[in-house]
């Protein structure tokens, strides 16, 4: 092999790496010959939030694959309600904390966290434990309480909505990670990754009055997609969602899902939900509508899923 050819090959290989040839990279970094394809979706069960996150990230090829050095990163948990972590109305603060740390150690220049809350934002940020968790981890907590923070963007792929007003932190970000909690939802039936995007927009009334399920799917066509969706199912509110009334609404199922495919992860989350409460896919209209809009796939059988039990 000529040196020139060798160089060419390496350049191509390098390019291939940056194109997310995950399996190859995994193989190269782990220095093993058996090339294991990087999964489309990872499901972890039986650990604490931080441990499960690490297992999932490891299986996906490391956080560095998603978060590059110097990037401005936004993490978008669900902080919608003035509820303590035990009541599972909001994303687990331990998960958010661990994720902020991982992003920072991957070299993110700053990590910001916000949500457009339903209850008073300061109460939500505080009661959820997320504000404290993010600050401890070295991240920044941003308010999402005022119209001022939201800028209009277009959603050309949407059927019902063609534009939305999105929090400027996301517009400025180089990458963002969607970190919902899995729960029952009175309106959308299931609240998970796709539904969590309603917390990045200002006027949700428009969504509710224009076919909620379609609008959720429409918003997910926004071109700036999360680099990763991580579903917190450590505690899961299986009834009276999304706010919940008491601990009786919560099942501790100690699970976590991670995937870049927002439709697939919601499909999988629905499967997990069905382990506790029966819920028909057809009722959760936005998942199917998401697939129709070609945001992702509901056909889990065609995906490479890695299941890890701790």
């Amino acid at each position: 092999m000529k040196r020139r050819d060798f160089l060419k090959t390496s350049v191509v290989a390098g390019a291939a790496l940056s194109l997310n040839f995950d399996g190859l990279q995994a193989a190269l970094t782990s220095d093993t010959t058996a090339v294991e394809a990087v999964p489309d979706l990872v499901a972890v069960m039986g650990g604490e939030p931080e441990a499960m996150l690490d297992k999932a990230l490891e299986a996906l090829g490391g956080i560095e694959k998603y978060i590059k050095k110097g990037q401005k990163v936004v993490i978008k948990p669900n902080i919608g309600w003035d509820r303590t972590p035990e009541l599972a109305g909001n994303t687990n603060p331990l998960l958010v904390k661990a994720l902020v740390k991982r992003c920072l150690s991957a070299g993110a220049s700053k990590v910001t966290v916000f949500d457009h809350t339903c209850d008073d934002w300061q109460k939500c940020y505080k009661s959820s434990g997320i504000e404290a968790a993010v600050k401890e981890a070295g991240g920044i907590v941003l308010p999402g309480n005022d119209e001022k923070y939201y800028k209009t963007i277009t959603v050309p792929g949407g059927l019902k909505i063609k534009e939305a007003r999105i929090h400027e932190a996301l517009l400025d970000a180089d990458a963002w990670i969607n970190v919902p909690i899995l729960k029952n939802h009175g309106g959308a039936k299931l609240s998970c990754a796709m539904k969590n995007l309603m917390g990045i927009v200002w006027d949700r009334r428009v969504f509710h009055s224009n076919d909620l399920q379609q609008c959720i799917a429409d918003l997910c066509t926004w071109q700036k997609k999360p680099v990763l969706n991580i579903v917190d199912a450590y505690r899961m509110m299986h009834q009276n969602g999304p706010q919940g009334r008491s601990a009786a609404d919560v099942a501790t199922i100690k699970s976590l899902l991670a995937s870049s495919d927002i439709v697939a992860i919601d499909t999988a989350a629905l499967g997990l939900f069905n382990q506790v409460k029966k819920l028909d896919m057809a009722a959760v209209g936005h998942i199917g509508k998401g697939e129709s809009l070609k945001i992702g796939s509901t056909d889990l059988s065609k995906l490479n899923i890695k299941r890890i039990k701790i």
């Binding site: 009175g186 309106g187 076919d211 909620l212 999304p242 706010q243 009334r245 028909d280």
Partner: peptide, 29 residues
């Protein structure tokens, strides 16, 4: 909305802290 548009909404029930407002089956799903 559920009556006039035939689409899901449920915002009221979402925000009800006592679930005095709750969702009951209507047409289809």
């Amino acid at each position: 909305i559920v009556y006039t548009e035939g689409t899901d909404c449920g915002a009221c029930s979402e925000h009800c802290p006592t679930q005095a407002v709750h969702m009951i089956p209507y047409e289809g799903t």
